[in-house]
Computed example of a mutant assay.
Amino acid sequence: MPSPDVLLVGLGSTHGLRVAEDELAGSLHRAGAEVVLARARRPREVRTFALTDLGWALAARRAAAGALARDDPRAVLYLTTTAALLWPRPGAIRFDAPAAANRPGRHGIWQRPLERRRLAQAPLLVPQDPGALAEAGAPPTPAIVVPIPVEPSAPEDGAGAPERDVAAVTYAANPAKKGLDRVLAAWDVARAPGETLVVAGLHGADRDGVRYAGTLPGPAFRALLRRARVYVTAPRREDYGIAQLEALADGCRVVTTPAPGPYAALPLLAGGVGWVADDALLPGALRSALDADEPGYAARALAAIAPFRRAAVDRVVAERLLPALLAGR
């Protein structure tokens, strides 16, 4: 069997990462490349971010080394900076946010300096958003921005669309980072009698107007977005904003606070398809979105995410990314 064109080395540590990894593998395959995706095996859980990253970096090294022992790919693409930290062979690096930004202080004591070296040594960087490249310090390495593709989860003609019988949804698998406390405070002010906020990604005690849905598989979360009038979030930091883009794809109005981080969805939301407000004005923005009545909103939101749709990403991969990956061999 001939060697693959591209070896992808991923962590697969979360549902979102696995989806993004599979999407890129599929896009490269549609561009005509033979692709192998090697995923790290989950390491044992430890108590600190520094040790957690070390465990995943070692697991990614083992996955990459095993794949390289079997094949001699023309290019290697590490799908996070963590996967690249202990690489057995240099390769391109894809990332949403660097350790330089999301591992402050002691949490990134060893990752940040090694990450700087890897970003400088890599033949190519593949950030998911230009903001990620800026947070990495704009290294001189050539870079190609390749977003995560987002598609509607139901037919675009609206056939069989459910009634939007859920007032609002938020995602809070990491409640502090996602600002759940700020969302709940705004909800308590903004909600009308009978309206319910569904909190996905987290278990909790239901109360009047708030229901916890726990961890949901991807299709179930998207089904919830199709039923919701509003998706609301108040992140303290946003590395990408995939849930916001998914909400737009499914015609759900999006309310957010501005946040540091690459936050790829924020320019779209601030540009007219969302409601963006600081903490003090969040209840009013949320109420405005709940009361909005624009029959054409779903179509307008879908048009706004055109650069993030699969066809647009496939063009970038076929015309720019794959030729750049294979240029050295």
Rank of each mutant, 00 (worst) to 15 (best):
N102R: 12
R103N: 08
V126F: 11
D71Y: 13
T141E: 10
A99D: 15
A63K: 01
Q111H: 11
W56M: 10
A50K: 06
A84T: 02
N102A: 09
P113S: 09
A75L: 01
A50Q: 12
N102K: 03
V145L: 07
R62F: 09
A65Q: 03
A67H: 04
T80W: 08
E151M: 13
V126Y: 09
A64S: 00
P155T: 08
A136R: 10
Q128D: 06
A97V: 02
A59E: 06
P98G: 05
D72I: 02
L119K: 08
P127N: 04
P88W: 10
A84S: 09
L125R: 09
A154C: 01
T81Q: 15
P73N: 10
G137M: 09
D71M: 05
G66A: 01
R117Q: 11
T141W: 04
R39F: 02
Q128C: 09
G137P: 04
T82S: 11
L54C: 03
T82Y: 05
A99I: 04
G91H: 03
V145M: 06
E135I: 00
V146E: 08
D72L: 10
V126E: 13
A101Y: 15
R116F: 03
P142A: 07
E45A: 14
A69T: 05
D96R: 02
A99V: 01
A59S: 07
L85T: 11
E115F: 02
G66V: 02
A60W: 05
R103M: 10
R44N: 07
P98C: 02
P88S: 12
E151Y: 04
T82D: 07
D96E: 14
R116S: 14
G137A: 06
G108W: 05
R61W: 07
A143G: 11
L54I: 03
A75V: 04
A57D: 13
W56V: 09
L125D: 13
R94K: 08
